[in-house]
Simulated scan of single mutants.
Amino acid sequence: MLGTWYVIQYYASSEEALPYRCMQAVFTMSPYPLEITMNFTYSFTDDPLNEKLFGNITWTIPDPSQHAHWTHSEDIYEGVYNTYVVDSDYSSWALLLHCAEKSKSPRYLSSFIMSRQPLLGINVISYLRDKLPRYDIDLTYMFDMTQNECDVPQNGIDIPPSVLVNRLPPGLRRHPLKGHHQI
């Protein structure tokens, strides 16, 4: 799993439309304690500047004999967040499932279909999508993650100064993997 991946399709149980584009992830692993870190970049689909935002998440590997199961917990979030590598050939495609089990609310699910390249064959996407319904993923809300023109402003338009002045700072915008999910 280590290295760079493009998110090709994305599902989150709390979202009815995909607000993100150009999501890429870089996975690294520390030897002790055994942890997987994902540093990722993304843009919002409606951002005419196509500003690249950054995020990260670090999981522990609770059982060294089970490298495909990672856990994450933070004091500000209730419960344990489990992530599973559902399937991968590790050289070109992967399917991740992220599940938050909370004591006072229904679980939160998300999933990534990822590729080492910005595009992935439709046959591989279909193969991976076919695995998701058994995990209660509604394929209707499995969205394509655009990987086009990720390094240029959208539509090549000039941005009016009023838009620039009224933009929320990145820290106040939604983060795709952290705590703003209502179920």
Rank of each mutant, 00 (worst) to 15 (best):
F112L: 10
I113R: 00
I113N: 00
I113W: 02
M114I: 12
M114D: 01
S115I: 00
R116A: 03
R116V: 04
R116W: 05
R116C: 01
Q117Y: 11
Q117A: 11
P118Y: 07
P118Q: 05
L119W: 04
L119Q: 14
L119M: 08
L119D: 13
L120K: 01
L120V: 02
G121P: 04
G121L: 07
I122A: 14
I122H: 11
I122F: 03
I122K: 12
I122W: 05
I122C: 00
N123R: 12
N123W: 05
N123D: 15
V124C: 02
V124K: 14
I125W: 06
S126G: 12
S126R: 14
Y127F: 11
L128Q: 10
L128S: 10
L128V: 11
R129Y: 01
D130C: 08
K131T: 08
K131S: 05
K131N: 11
L132W: 11
L132M: 15
L132P: 05
P133G: 09
P133T: 07
Y135G: 07
D136M: 09
D136C: 04
I137M: 08
D138C: 03
D138G: 01
D138Y: 01
L139P: 00
T140G: 05
T140W: 00
T140N: 13
Y141L: 01
Y141E: 00
Y141C: 00
Y141K: 10
M142S: 08
M142L: 15
M142Q: 10
M142G: 02
F143A: 12
F143K: 08
F143G: 06
D144P: 07
D144T: 09
D144M: 07
D144G: 04
T146K: 08
T146P: 02
Q147Y: 06
Q147C: 03
N148A: 11
N148M: 08
N148C: 01
E149H: 14
E149F: 10
E149T: 06
E149S: 13
C150R: 07
C150P: 07
D151Y: 15
D151V: 04
D151N: 12
V152F: 05
V152A: 13
P153G: 10
P153K: 08
Q154S: 13
Q154M: 09
Q154N: 09
N155W: 09
G156N: 15
I157E: 14
I157W: 10
I157H: 08
D158F: 11
D158V: 10
I159N: 07
I159L: 12
I159Y: 08
P160M: 06
P160H: 08
S162D: 12
S162G: 01
S162A: 14
V163P: 00
V163M: 09
L164H: 06
L164Y: 05
L164M: 14
V165E: 15
V165F: 12
N166S: 15
N166D: 12
R167D: 02
R167G: 01
R167K: 14
R167T: 05
R167L: 15
L168C: 06
L168H: 08
P169E: 05
P169L: 03
P169Q: 03
P169A: 03
P170F: 03
